[in-house]
Amino acid sequence: MTDAPLSLVDVHFAWPGKGGFALSCPAFVLAPGERVLLLGSSGSGKSTLLSLICGIATPQRGQVLIAGTDMGALRAGARDRFRAARIGVIFQQFNLLPYASVADNILLPLRFAPERRARAADAIAEARRLCMAIGLPDNLLYMPAGRLSVGQQQRVAVVRALIGAPPLIVADEPTSALDAATQDAFLQLLFDQVADAGSSLLMVSHDERLGAHFDRVVRLDEIVTTKRVPA
């Protein structure tokens, strides 16, 4: 049996300091190739959960398993490399280093993840292929990322998350900066490419209308309990 790309086991975490935010998640599993929409309004612990999944924060108790590896058991440096190798991240907006070229932005995660670099073989050709597939003109590749439109930037972010085919793609409201018409087209492109790479997709959003596109819709409050530590 292959390990699930992501599974959370009895996770408990509290931000340090008073007035902090505590979160616990007894169990959550993402199957290989699965596309899951995690619904939650702001303040529901979305950001904290994403930090835990990406290994930026480590739980005080329990395990965050990425493809069977416990993130919390890794040392900080190894955890950063592990994240680069296994997880492609797409933010809400401002995904790119505005001063760097599109190509450099796309290739940046490969710099920290030799496995992904090896999988991408000819990295720049792979970047070009993905750009074509997602509808980005070829000549954008060497433009500073800051000159692109928001929609184009989000697509570059998708290419960057997908290059080298990491097993897990985490997207944090990637469509919120786009208008409704572009949203659907963007999601379709995202799904096609995720399926093509054989990755699993975990997307966090507050927008219930997106649910129809996904294999599974999970409400954040179904899997997570939060509490605010009084100051």
């Binding site: 990406c54 440096g77 950063d80 490399r81 994240r83 680069a84 991240v89 940046l108 920290f112 960057r160």
Partner: peptide, 12 residues
């Protein structure tokens, strides 16, 4: 934050 998400360590 972008650097971190791409796998850069704080040391980087």
């Amino acid at each position: 934050a972008i650097w971190r998400a791409m796998g850069a360590s704080p040391a980087t």
